[in-house]
Amino acid sequence: MTRVLDVLAIVLFLAATVAFGFGLRALGNRQDFEAIYLLVVGGFALRASTELLRPRGSAA
């Protein structure tokens, strides 16, 4: 279980990294909706990836 969660944290981190990159690219292409969407999704993915690895006591 813990190994699965570790892999999930890495996948979420990679997804966030890619989402941020495409979000900034969309902002440069004047696609504001896509940019906001990708940046917010990246933020949520990044938060989820770090929450997965946070010790249980400090997460409450």
Partner: peptide, 29 residues
Amino acid sequence: STVATARGKSRNPAGRRLTAPVIRALLFL
């Protein structure tokens, strides 16, 4: 830095880390 170093650290006794904040963050996502 968190993802790189926090993996493999000491687990809680139940071995379960799907806590409420984690589930909430995944649901938001």
